[in-house]
Amino acid sequence: MSKTLTSDARKKDTREKIELGGLIVKAGLRFEKRAMLLGALLELARRLKADAGERARLTAIGAEAFGNDGE
C-alpha cells in the first residue's frame, strides 16, 4: 500500500509541476532563461511578503487573464 501512496504522491507532484510550467508559457515567458525566471519569482515572493496589496493586485490581473481564455 505504501508504494501506491508513493506513486500517487509522485503523480500529483508531477501534475502540479506541469501545471506550473503551463503558467510560465501562458505568461509568455517560455523562452526566458531559467535563472531569470527564478530570480523574478524570488523577487515576487519578497514583494508579496512586504506588500499585501500587491498580492491582491496581481491576483486580479491573473484572474482576468484566465477569464480571457475561459479557464
Rank of each mutant, 00 (worst) to 15 (best):
A52Q: 15
L44D: 05
N68C: 07
E64W: 06
G67P: 07
L58M: 07
G67W: 03
K49D: 12
A65T: 02
R55F: 13
L41W: 04
A63E: 09
R55L: 14
L58D: 06
E64H: 10
L41R: 04
L42R: 05
L41K: 01
G62I: 13
R46K: 14
A56G: 09
R57K: 15
L48P: 04
R46M: 08
E43W: 07
L42Y: 09
T59V: 11
I61M: 11
E43N: 12
A40H: 02
R46F: 07
R46T: 14
G67T: 12
F66S: 08
L41I: 06
E54I: 08
L48C: 02
L38Q: 14
N68E: 11
N68Y: 02
K49M: 14
E43V: 11
K49G: 02
E64K: 14
L58P: 00
L44H: 01
R47S: 01
L58I: 07
L37N: 04
I61G: 06
A56S: 14
A60I: 01
G67V: 08
L37C: 02
E64Y: 09
L37H: 04
R47E: 05
T59S: 12
A45M: 12
R47D: 00
E43C: 10
L58W: 00
G67E: 06
K49F: 03
L41G: 07
A63W: 15
T59F: 13
G39I: 01
A63D: 10
